[in-house]
Design a protein around this nucleic acid. Structure first.
Lengths: 194, 194
DNA sequence: GACATAACATACTAATTGGTATGTTGGCAA
DNA sequence: TTGCCAACATACCAATTAGTATGTTATGTC
């Protein structure tokens, strides 16, 4: 990677951390260049506007990161129930970078930026849809393998699951990490009874 | 109500609408006084700071409004399954003031303000806890009446339900109102199978 | 009707915002 | 070695921010 590309990626990474904790609009460019030790000239050389940086951040940092944790494990899954639960447990408990106080960076951006910027909205909707599709595919495979005792509509179960994730990330901001534990137990019971 | 109290409440109401659509930090006092036709002097006569106004808004507008829709119907409920579903359907479909693009004002505030201001966090956590308690109480009553076929932990089911709500409000911002319908069908199946 | 205070109105400020204009420098091709 | 451009650096700017200082006016009380 060239030095310029290094600088660019470093700006994106540090911005990602700041925005995760403070929100997109409350993170100023001045603060970003202060923590990155990069000058304003350098910042605007690499990114046309703040929103250009934000969108690059979604596509080049957030998206690949989330894809690896939320979607890839489901594509390779044998038992969809175990796989879905494992992904959720991994997301909620194992990621040390994710703090209950600050929630999930993807959920935060959807919450804050979807109503403000249609380009952000589209990029974030893509991420959600991919997760949804991966869960539906895993459930479909499970139904084909006859591992479920009840009949259900995979799209509806997927929506309950991804909503549960987004919601518990929200609740966790108010009530703390204990919400995660309670939710995970409830999710496990739900999935087992499918 | 005195004229001064009228002015105060009008500021809170209009601020509530603006903040619902734009977020708390992105709604400036200048914008609030422009839409309310109230001068800056009047604003700062009624509220010490912006955060003082925000907290008043939570306690005097958001809290009573949400209480009536989310909690009261559950306290009077006979069939908890029907009551919980009805509350959710009412929240997601019937409130014309609530727009899928802008989500839920309470969820939005938790998302944005819980990490920024511990006073906001506390006031919002109270609202969540009350809803949680109301759902748990309704489920407990249902278990005492032996209307459920499965055994479950009410706290866990309540957490799945309130997380589902918060999450689908988030997903809805990215994917639109159709998410609500899919979620509600999934929720119904979940509740019926309890 | 005098007076006090509540309820505003106006004009300002210092700090912060995203963005720009105009530099400078380092490395590589010819 | 020279020339050129990518990759920065510095200095600025107009707009917006929450908040304040200092007014004026309405209203109730005696």
């Amino acid at each position: 990677m060239s030095k310029a590309a290094d600088t660019r990626m470093m700006i994106l990474q540090k911005s990602f951390e700041l925005i995760y904790r403070k929100g997109y609009q409350s993170t100023s460019i001045d603060e970003i260049i202060a923590t990155t030790q990069v000058t304003k000239g350098a910042f605007f050389y690499h990114f046309k506007t703040k929103d250009d940086m934000g969108l690059s951040l979604i596509n080049e940092v957030l998206y690949p990161g989330m894809y690896n944790v939320m979607i890839k494990p489901l594509e390779e899954a044998k038992d969809p129930v175990k796989a879905i639960y494992k992904v959720m447990e991994n997301l909620l408990n194992d990621f040390v970078f994710f703090n209950p106080d600050y929630g999930c960076p993807a959920i935060n951006l959807i919450e804050e930026m979807s109503p403000m910027n249609p380009v952000f909205k589209k990029a974030l909707a893509k991420l959600v849809k991919q997760w949804q599709n991966a869960i539906v595919a895993a459930l479909n495979k499970g139904q084909a393998d006859h591992i479920f005792t009840s009949t259900f509509v995979p799209e509806e179960v997927a929506m309950v699951v991804i909503s549960g994730y987004g919601g518990v990330r929200n609740i966790g901001k108010a009530l703390g990490k204990s919400s995660y534990k309670t939710y995970l137990r409830g999710l496990k019971t739900y999935l087992i009874n499918l």
